[in-house]
Design a protein around this nucleic acid. Structure first.
Lengths: 208, 208
DNA sequence: TCGGGCCGCGGACCTAGGTCCAAAGACCGA
DNA sequence: TCGGTCTTTGGACCTAGGTCCGCGGCCCGA
């Protein structure tokens, strides 16, 4: 165990970063070499430090976690990425997995399990939370995350803010009829019954 | 500074507890004497350890954070309670303040600010996040958190799960008409326009 | 250049969601 | 015991939200 696993911790909360660092510093063979508080900092730090593993929180202000994930993969020496988040929503994790996450654990893992996860990911394994793995294996639910068009995503965001069709129409400068069409398409793609469920879906997946 | 301030850390995430502990242990005059992961443990630990200050996360599985807060105040030597949470929603904090929280800070505070907050609270001050203070001072918005009846709360929870009135009626074993009445009352009390906004409100305030 | 998806729109239509008014029984504290 | 709140329900009513079908324009990749 000459070379410790070099880890970059990315989370917007200083408290969480400190907690992770403290946990990991006492682990054999794991060294936290840096921290970042958002997606942008994550990329610059990763480029500078060449960590082996990036511990990435999906929910961050500013840059989208998934976008950061994709950015990491475009580096010269792409690190392995272990997503650590509080979303228990399977639909939120699928995009991450598809974007190249090597692992996905919930934020309430205990320290030994987290260390084990990091080692596993570093060793090249793909490590998923049991719930997630089951979902992927079963292939139930829409096998891949529903793919909304950009316009639909814009509409969904408005819906998730509690806006009415009329308000959305005004905001996007289109007719109310058009908004209805988009909403209808969204409901179909997300496989939900009404706008309330769609709004809930949006917040669960971190869209808002 | 002979006697350090004795602090009990309450949060359901081990990572966050560790982070807080590490932050505070390096602070002069502050000693973390215990941790708890939920409301029940919080009460037993508080009774056992008699901490000066309890750092309390409002969002916890199982016991409600506010309920724990109330429980703390019924102890023989009630500790000062500093609520630390990630809710930015003013409506979520008001109940906490009314339940006797001596302070309210957001989870993204930096370590020195947190230590200062603990000292201030221990000194008997009431310390609120600027946003919260402004809200209380201005007295805008409904001056106190809207007070739903238990039945209304039950209905709201169902709404926040994306259920239709018909489904809620079936679940609660009442007529759809009754559900409508409750929903209408809820909308009025929360001052929102429709069920979607009500559902969003519920998730923001941590009701679900 | 020929689809095919995306976007914007219209019409007709149905229904869930919400509002207002009213009322009766249960429960509870003054 | 009396008044107030909670819970339940009814009726009548209006409208936002959604669905289905169809159309035209735009842009992009095969």
């Amino acid at each position: 165990m000459a070379e410790p696993i070099r880890v970059l911790v990315v989370d917007d909360h200083p408290v969480v970063r400190q907690g992770l660092r403290t946990f990991l510093d006492v682990q054999e063979g794991i060294a936290v070499v840096g921290e970042a508080e958002d997606g942008a900092a994550c990329l610059t730090e990763a480029e500078r430090l060449h960590p082996d593993v990036v511990l990435l929180d999906l929910r961050m202000p500013g840059t989208d976690g998934v976008a950061a994930l994709r950015g990491l993969h475009e580096l010269d020496t792409p690190p392995r990425v272990l997503v650590i988040t509080s979303f228990t929503e399977p639909t939120a994790v699928l995009p991450a997995v598809r974007a190249g996450a090597a692992g996905y654990v919930y934020k309430d893992v205990d320290p030994p399990a987290l260390a084990a996860a990091i080692r596993a990911v570093h060793a090249g394994h793909v490590l998923l939370h049991p719930d997630v793995a089951r979902l992927l294996a079963a292939g139930d639910a829409p096998p891949v995350a529903p793919t909304l068009t950009t316009r639909e995503r814009e509409v969904l965001i408005e819906v998730a803010r509690g806006r009415s069709n009329r308000e959305i129409a005004k905001a996007l400068a289109v007719s109310e009829k058009t908004v209805k069409t988009h909403v209808s398409a969204i409901l179909g793609k997300l496989d939900v019954q009404d706008r309330t469920q769609a709004a809930l879906y949006a917040v669960r997946t971190g869209l808002v």
